[in-house]
């Protein structure tokens, strides 16, 4: 469904993403993990059309969309959430989600009806009339998810929707994400909460310093020495192995 080929994204002298290639098959939940500053969000911005890559191409359902404007990608079925939440602060929750619903439904009553249904789903049903600015962190993350979902996407890009949530809030939202996938939406998610990655993802790609360094199912990726070193520093895997054998 999604194919990222040799994407390089340079900001001046900084190479945020350097030649990343991977694909996401239809119907999958794929994870994108990696340490802070690895280039994950940048890669999402390239896929969603917010950034034009320095080199490489993005293909969606077989078509090259590298030069397609963001709003047309949304119309094609790519929706993203923002790691740094971007609510329409002056609007209430219903109006926020309705902007997403309007993509496929021109009538106001239909868009509002859809917005309410989506709000119910992600657990914002009680907050429909609240100003978006009054939501808690967890509420704002849900709102990001709701708005993206309201566009009825084929591919959903989730950028750390679980960050900042407490364990019980995470326990609430994980089944929602799984249910979205079960309805046929393909999901690519950036996530630091490993428990959720283990729980949700069938396949994980690991990005470190702009390069994809490992991939596979979550347990084997976590055991990969290259991944451990990327997170904990050079030599860390070796130290851990030694500590484990001493214990």
């Amino acid at each position: 469904m999604l194919e990222v080929r040799d994407i390089t994204m340079r900001f001046g002298g900084l190479v945020a993403v350097g030649g990343a290639s991977f694909s996401v098959p239809k119907g999958a939940i794929v994870g994108l993990i990696g340490p802070n500053g690895a280039g994950k969000t940048t890669l999402f911005a390239v896929i969603a059309g917010f950034l034009t890559p320095t080199a490489g191409s993005v293909r969606f359902e077989g078509d090259d969309i590298t030069a397609m404007p963001t709003h047309r990608r949304a119309a094609r079925g790519i929706a993203r959430t923002f790691q740094i939440v971007q609510p329409f602060a002056g609007l209430d929750v219903r109006e926020n989600i309705a902007v997403g619903a309007y993509l496929r439904h021109a009538s106001a009553s239909e868009a509002h009806r859809r917005a309410e249904a989506v709000a119910q789903r992600v657990g914002l049903g009680a907050d429909l009339d609240k100003p978006a600015a009054s939501l808690t962190v967890a509420g704002r993350k849900r709102l990001e998810l709701a708005r993206a979902l309201a566009t009825e996407p084929k591919l959903l890009l989730l950028d750390e929707v679980l960050a900042g949530l407490n364990p019980s809030e995470i326990r609430d939202i994980v089944p929602v994400i799984r249910a979205i996938r079960d309805e046929g939406v393909t999901i690519l998610m950036i996530e630091h909460v490993m428990q959720a990655v283990m729980n949700l993802c069938e396949h994980v790609h690991v990005l470190a310093q702009g390069k994809l360094i490992a991939q596979g199912d979550p347990p084997s990726v976590c055991a990969d020495p290259a991944v451990v070193e990327a997170y904990l520093g050079r030599g860390a895997a070796e130290r851990l192995r030694l500590e484990a054998s001493h214990a």
Binding site: G49, A74, F82, P87, A89, L91, E95, V99
Partner: peptide, 21 residues
């Protein structure tokens, strides 16, 4: 819809774009 999109553009252009505006 047009009215909602106008307000969305005022409030946050990036979010509006991401939602297909």
């Amino acid at each position: 819809r047009f009215g909602a999109q106008l307000v969305a553009v005022r409030e946050n252009e990036d979010a509006a774009k991401a939602l297909g505006v």
